[in-house]
Simulated scan of single mutants.
Amino acid sequence: MPLTFVGLGLCDERDITLKGLEAVRNADRVYVEFYTSRLSTSLETLERTFGREIELLERRHLEEESAKLIDEARERVVVVLVPGDPMIATTHSSVVFEAKKKGVEVRIIHNASIVSAIAGVTGLHIYRFGKIATVSYPYRNTVSRTPLDVIKQNLSINAHTLLLLDLNPEPMTIEYAVELLERIDDGTLDHFAVGVARVGSDDSLAVCDKFYRLRDHDFGKPLHSIVVLARTIHITEYEFLREFANAPASLESLVE
C-alpha cells in the first residue's frame, strides 16, 4: 500500500492539483499537518471540499512517532496533506527515507510553495537566490543569529536571501521579524529588501524598500516572508520591483 504525500499549494483548498485530489478521494485514511506551513482555510473546509474526513497531525506524529504512520501504510492507502510542496520540509523527506528503508511504497504529488513562487511574485531571478533561512521566535529571550549569518553568506556571493517567518506559536509578521533582526544587526541589514504577504491569494502583496522601512508598510494578515536583495540586481529585476512592488527610485543604485 502506498504512503502518499500531497502538496496543497500556497493558499487554500482550491490549490490542490487534480492528481492530488484523486489521491485523497482514493485513500483509506487522510491526514493533514499545519506546522511546516499554513493555508488561509480551515480543516473543516478541506473536509467539506474534498468529501473526506481528515485527521490533523501534530509535529510528533511525523517525527518521533513516524513509524506508526509508516506501519499503517503497510495495510492501508494513506495520504498526508501538506501545505505548499511536501518535500520542502526536511521532516517529510526523513519520513520518505524511513518508509523506503522499510519497503513501504511512497508517492509524492508536488505543488507550488513559497520557494518556487517567490520569483514570480517579486520578479527576482530564481537562479540568483542563495540559502534560505527562517526567522524564529526568541528562545529564552535569545534571538538566533542564523538568519543574519545566512544573509551575510549570500551577500558574499551576490545572492538574494529568502527569509521564512516562524509559524509557531502564531504566524510571525514582517514588522516583528524586522524588530527581531534589528537586535542582532551589525549594519548588514542597511540594504534593500522585499516584503511579501499571502502569496498565491487574490490579495497578495509585495513591497520593496530599505529593510528597516518594511515595518512602516501595512502588509495585512500573514503569511509573510522577506527577501533581502543581493548586492546588485539585474535591470529587469529593478523594473519589475518598480512596477509591481512600489520600489523607490533609489533602488536603481543596485543595478549592475
Rank of each mutant, 00 (worst) to 15 (best):
G7K: 00
L10G: 00
R14C: 03
I16L: 00
I16H: 09
A23R: 14
D28K: 09
D28Q: 11
V30F: 06
Y31P: 05
E33C: 03
S37N: 13
L39S: 09
S40D: 10
T41R: 06
T41E: 10
E44N: 05
L46M: 12
E53A: 05
E55I: 13
L62F: 07
E65G: 00
I70D: 01
D71C: 07
E75L: 05
E75T: 13
V78Q: 00
L81D: 12
P86H: 09
M87C: 11
H92F: 08
S93C: 06
K100A: 06
K102R: 15
H110A: 13
A112Y: 08
V115D: 02
A119K: 09
G130D: 10
G130V: 03
I132M: 14
V135C: 05
S136C: 04
S136M: 12
T142D: 11
V143Y: 10
R145M: 07
L148E: 12
L148D: 10
L148H: 04
I151H: 01
S156E: 15
I157E: 11
I157D: 10
T161G: 08
N168E: 15
M172Q: 09
T173L: 08
T173E: 06
E175L: 13
V178G: 07
L181C: 10
G187F: 07
G187L: 12
T188P: 08
F192I: 09
V196H: 05
R198E: 08
V207Y: 11
F219W: 04
F219I: 03
G220W: 06
G220T: 04
G220R: 00
S225N: 13
I226N: 05
H234W: 05
H234Y: 11
Y238T: 07
Y238K: 03
L241Q: 02
R242S: 14
A249C: 00
S250L: 12
L251Y: 11
S253H: 11
S253F: 09
L254E: 05
V255E: 09
E256Y: 09
E256L: 14
